[in-house]
Amino acid sequence: MLGSGVVLTYWIFTSSLEVMAIALAVSPGNFSIAAARGPKDSIVKSGALTSQSPPNPASDTASRGLGDGIYLYGQSSKPDEIKKEYFVFELRESKVVGAFYLPRSAFYCFYGTAARNQLNLTVVDTYDGTRSPYSVNLPQYYPIAAISENDRRILGICKEAHKHEVWGK
């Protein structure tokens, strides 16, 4: 039986066919996996973590819901911290498209809907295109005001790749 947290491992195949694993520690309530995936998939549940308290108490913005715009959230209040998870997304009329990433690593696009302080998403595997449902509890992350050019570049790639699923265009 898993504890209150899980570790997600992303497998990234480099051009020399070496494998690099990036383990993302997911604290309780941050992510929930709607369905378990098979061992061939690139996102693998690999163990349990001890219980952690949420890093960020519910903010006024999260309790009111977000308006249309571009947002950056992270496990740290500082952008680009190594081994910290971040996600950038654009919200329009409760529809969302964006990416999860670790600084200096690969990213995974997502699309879905936003409700008050939660994102209900489909995450797309960068390498094989498989899709997995996820739910993100925004108050568990820190909002970050400074959105970098790299954040905008990653967001642009995901917006272009998934505009039909999100906005039908």
Rank of each mutant, 00 (worst) to 15 (best):
M1P: 13
G3W: 04
S4F: 12
V6P: 06
W11M: 08
I12M: 07
E18G: 15
V19F: 08
A21K: 13
L24G: 05
S27Y: 09
G29P: 04
G29M: 04
S32A: 02
A35R: 06
R37A: 14
G38H: 09
D41Y: 14
V44I: 14
V44E: 10
K45D: 03
G47C: 12
A48D: 10
P54T: 03
P54L: 03
G65T: 03
L66G: 11
D68L: 05
D68I: 05
I70M: 00
I70W: 03
L72Y: 02
D80P: 06
D80F: 11
Y86I: 05
V88L: 01
E90F: 11
E90T: 15
L91Y: 11
L91P: 05
E93Y: 13
R104N: 14
R104G: 08
S105A: 13
A106M: 08
A106Q: 10
Y111D: 00
Y111K: 04
G112P: 08
T113I: 06
A114D: 07
L119P: 09
L121V: 15
T126E: 14
Y127D: 15
G129Y: 11
T130E: 08
R131C: 07
P133Y: 10
Q140G: 05
Y142H: 15
A145T: 10
R152S: 09
R153G: 01
R153C: 03
R153S: 10
H164A: 15
G168I: 12
